[in-house]
Design a protein around this nucleic acid. Structure first.
Lengths: 147, 147
DNA sequence: CAATACTTGATTATATTAGTAAGGTATGCT
DNA sequence: AGCATACCTTACTAATATAATCAAGTATTG
């Protein structure tokens, strides 16, 4: 029942982006250095995040990524499901499940299904703005994007 | 965010044991056949379940396993944590976590911690008796242990 | 036109998990 | 007593998924 580091990286990177962007693009190079995440790996993650309509890219010098929506409109659950496949605890919940044949399978299925809904509900109850505010309280920024 | 099949097998096997035992030991061979779980694999699982004080073993012919407590006193969360390590979504929550160095790490940590507690709370709210009753309703047993 | 930074796919290394195998030990039944 | 049953335990192998790296692009700005 472990979350992949991919998802952890993605959420950290998105919080970083939220904090350090001041409406202007943030390059992956920056994020990579601050968060100690391999640049090439971040590129893969942001490729997906862009397709998932969570960030937008700005090309060329001084380019980078910006949030596709307001930080209050981006939920953690979205980020996780976008970079790593679904939150369902077991695979057969992903698509149309075959009917239960064994005695015990129905009841355990309903557990895992309920669990998946709990997880999704929890992660969707948290948005990036909440996290950015919390992060600023705990670690006041050195200087908030002068210029 | 997937649950291992180990945990799924363990819960199914425990529900099976609850339903088919009538106070008497149930052999792993039986469970293996009904649930289509490799016998050797079940042995490994029940080795742990025994150490975790969830089942008791009865050796010799006509032996097998019985619940160590009433089914209402055995929670699903217990079974899962006993056969596969912890429910925490990330590793560093397992023991004393190192202090947060990066800006974003504190806040993401608190998410994963909260998530872990939700998961645990949910799985601990379900016990084996609930599941056995539900299973009997859905699949009335062929014959409930005559003799 | 050159530097910057995003874009994309392929490949490799590593870790985890699932499953198999084999030999041993205790117990009850005939 | 001895044999069959079924638990007990460790070790190993194979498959899969993940993390990370490599490399060769394309678009845009100054």
């Amino acid at each position: 029942m472990r979350l992949s580091t991919k998802a952890q990286y993605a959420v950290r990177a998105m919080v970083d982006l939220t904090i350090f962007s001041g409406g202007r693009p943030v390059s992956l190079k920056e994020i990579s250095q601050r968060e100690e995440i391999p640049l090439n790996y971040l590129e893969q993650l942001f490729f997906r995040l862009k397709k998932g309509n969570i960030v937008k890219s700005v090309r060329g010098p001084r380019g980078g990524y910006i949030l596709a929506r307001q930080s209050s409109q981006i939920r953690v659950g979205e980020i996780v499901t976008t970079v790593e496949e679904p939150l369902n605890p077991i695979a057969c919940l992903d698509e149309g499940a075959p009917s239960c044949t064994r005695h015990t399978q129905c009841v355990t299925h309903s557990i895992w299904q309920g669990l998946g809904e709990k997880i999704k509900g929890f992660l969707d109850s948290i948005n990036l703005e909440d996290l950015a505010i919390e992060a600023r309280l705990k670690h006041p920024l050195p200087h908030q994007n002068e210029h």
